[in-house]
Design a binder for these strands. Structure first.
Lengths: 117, 117
DNA sequence: ATGGGTAGTTACAAAAATGTGCCTTCTTGT
DNA sequence: ACAAGAAGGCACATTTTTGTAACTACCCAT
């Protein structure tokens, strides 16, 4: 068994319940929509309906669901403005910002992948 | 709408059917087991049953399924040896190797994430 | 008072991913 | 002859994720 505790990647116990950082990260961001949502937010904070318009095909239910998940997981934050009517702004937390370079490398790999098909 | 065709990340059309590199990449590698499988293979090629032993909780059916998917997607290759009894070696393709740094950044983010919980 | 924008919710349905348990075929070692 | 390792396959069940359609409530401008 390779040494998951002390190799160049850091720690990976492979024990269940998200004790493996890769499995955990995949769980936190690896869904159909979260990548795109985080990508949008990596450019700037956004209001709910703006995001909805930017993501073709997503429904309100799913968008709200994903946003809630990301919020609970500490990747984004949700802030209601004092405007009338009230608006809701979503933006990355520090943890979310840390994920941006990861997203960037995922994206460039995805592009390379596409160009080889 | 942000310019997905020409920003610092490259191309992201956001049109369906995996025309978005992030969505595509997530689809190719973002499942419960693929991250771990690729992580193992990033260290060295491996035989089927060896992988099975290394991944606690995975079943034969699921492992085979994931390996087939990764193979079809061009991330890994499958090679039967001439041994008796026949063994099957799995290893990363060039595309798979390209994914290793991505995996590495995902992993280090995952570790940071875990330490903040 | 009507339409349109804000940000959702609800009940239900379908699809996708993962899991369970057992069976197979080949081969080598005892 | 029999067990055990290698690499799966098959039928079925469950869980998780996504989707559909309609509905709410608030506010603003015409």
């Amino acid at each position: 068994m390779p040494d998951f505790k002390n190799d160049q990647y850091g720690t990976c116990t492979l024990t269940v319940e998200r004790a493996c950082p890769i499995e955990l990260a995949m769980h936190v961001v690896g869904s159909k929509w979260k990548g795109i949502i985080l990508y949008l937010l990596s450019h700037s904070p956004m209001y709910y309906n703006a995001m909805r318009r930017e993501i073709p095909g997503i429904t309100q239910r799913i968008l709200t669901l994903q946003l809630r998940n990301l919020e609970v997981d500490g990747i984004i934050e949700r802030k209601e403005t004092n405007d009338n009517p009230k608006k809701v702004l979503y933006y990355l937390t520090a943890l979310g910002e840390d994920f941006v370079p990861v997203l960037k490398s995922i994206k460039s790999w995805g592009n390379a992948y596409m160009s080889k098909q």
